[in-house]
Amino acid sequence: MNIIDSVLVAVAVMTLGAAFIGAVLGWASARFRVEGNPLVDKIESALPQTQCGQCGFPGCRAYAEAISSGAPINLCPPGGEAGARKLADLLGREIPVSGVVEKPPQVAEIDEASCIGCTLCIQACPVDAIVGAAKQLHTVVGSICTGCERCAASCPAECIRMRTIPETIDNWKWKPPVFEIRRFA
């Protein structure tokens, strides 16, 4: 077999191989196509689901879609540093240098003296955490409130304040040991 022949054989083998693999890949992509966008679902499940809109998008789902098409991952204050880290791990992106707006967990609280019973906060609350009726005193159900601050913005009497949830024995957490080895050096 001369050189030309062997080159031709090599080219033929490579071409056939490429065609075969291409066919298999094409078939597989059609056969095993994943419906929808699983990445958006994954991102959404990493978001804290407070649906507060503080990120500038209407709800966690919308923000998840925005992230999947390139929006920054540090816009979610309820998720905080930990949430951004989750997103960073998931997407293989870096957390922007500016960091995340970190806010301690908080709940809304209605100042009963100045509440006028306008029901505007009830309509604003996305999780129905405020109970009350027109011209009646409203109150926040603390265990349901996500601390999204929408009610505070809606209140015409400015009687809703955000209160940081204090550390109690029930929500206390063990801290990692801060064990400076230098101290013993």
Binding site: Q49, A129, K173, W174
Partner: peptide, 22 residues
């Protein structure tokens, strides 16, 4: 430390699920 963080996260996940439901 890890266990209390995990417990807090489980609680959070539960709350997030409830929130989403609401």
């Amino acid at each position: 430390f890890a266990k209390s963080e995990i417990a807090a996260r489980r609680k959070e996940t539960e709350k997030a699920a409830a929130t989403r439901f609401r």
